Simulated scan of single mutants.
Amino acid sequence: MGGEMRYEISQNAYIKLVLHALKHTTSAVNGVLLGRVSGGGTSPVLEITDSVPLFHSQIGLLPPLEIALIQIEDYYGAQGLNIVGYYHANERFDDFELNNVAKNIGDHIYRYFPQAAVLLLDNKKLEALPKSKERSPVMQLYTRNGSWKLVGSDGSSRLTIKEPSGNIVLLDYMSSEKWHNIIDFDDHLNDISKDWLNPELFT
């Protein structure tokens, strides 16, 4: 038997998905997680190295989702990365349920990648971040074993940010309202000159 999977998200992947949610506070948003499994049998780690913001309107529609996934798989597959999970932020601030859209897209990813993770933004943790000086991600971690289940009380023990200062950098980006610069697939489909890879976000 192998060890229990741990989940590690890079600072940039993490900041990108939180900024995506902050840009569209009145609607649900979603995106996919890219990465790979490392560490082998005894201490496997799912390394989430990047995230791609997908949609902020009609997020359950299949045709745009399929177009997005094909383009993402083509681009990241060439770099040896897989789609390893999904992230979601609910429309309502006080909604902490993983809804059916999130579960269905998670199921789709799980079929190809059984170690898939689903991350749900915890708005209360995000709101408390400036005062709490918390180091753990403001996300709930879900994994699938028959159905999608929350890991632990908040999932934080098995989900960590790779860089210890991730939340400090995030707060800096929040204070400078960097979320205005984030581009998701919705934006790209409306105007193909907008680059969903967000190459200038961290420059």
Rank of each mutant, 00 (worst) to 15 (best):
G166A: 12
Q11F: 04
P63I: 08
I192S: 14
A28F: 01
Q79A: 15
H24C: 02
N104K: 12
G39N: 07
V45N: 09
Q79F: 15
L65M: 11
V101Q: 04
D122E: 10
L121Y: 00
I70E: 14
D191R: 10
K178L: 10
N90Q: 10
H88N: 09
E127F: 14
N104Y: 11
L54C: 07
T26I: 06
V18A: 03
K131S: 13
D122N: 14
P130I: 08
Y110V: 03
G166P: 01
N123C: 08
G146V: 07
F202P: 05
L69N: 04
N99S: 08
T160N: 12
L19I: 07
S165T: 14
Y75P: 00
V151T: 06
N198F: 05
P63V: 09
D184L: 05
E8N: 08
H88M: 12
L34C: 07
Y7E: 00
G80C: 08
G35H: 00
T160H: 09
P130Q: 08
L33D: 04
K103L: 10
D107P: 05
L54D: 03
A21R: 03
L33H: 01
Y76Q: 03
I70N: 14
D74Q: 13
H88Y: 10
R135D: 11
K162H: 11
S157L: 12
L197Y: 14
I183R: 00
G60L: 05
V138G: 02
I182A: 02
E47N: 13
L62D: 14
D186V: 01
L22W: 03
Y14F: 12
S165K: 13
T25P: 15
P53C: 12
G152Y: 06
G166D: 02
K125M: 14
D186W: 00
L171Q: 15
G41N: 13
L121Q: 04
D107R: 08
S38Y: 15
Q71Y: 09
D187A: 12
I182E: 00
G155W: 00
Q115I: 07
I109W: 04
I70Y: 09
L119H: 01
I168F: 10
N190L: 13
L119P: 03
R92H: 11
L22Q: 09
L126G: 05
M139E: 05
F202Y: 13
G41W: 10
E134D: 12
Y173D: 04
N145Q: 11
F202Q: 09
S10A: 13
L170N: 04
K124S: 13
Y75Q: 09
Q140Y: 11
S132Y: 07
Q115L: 14
V151C: 02
L120V: 15
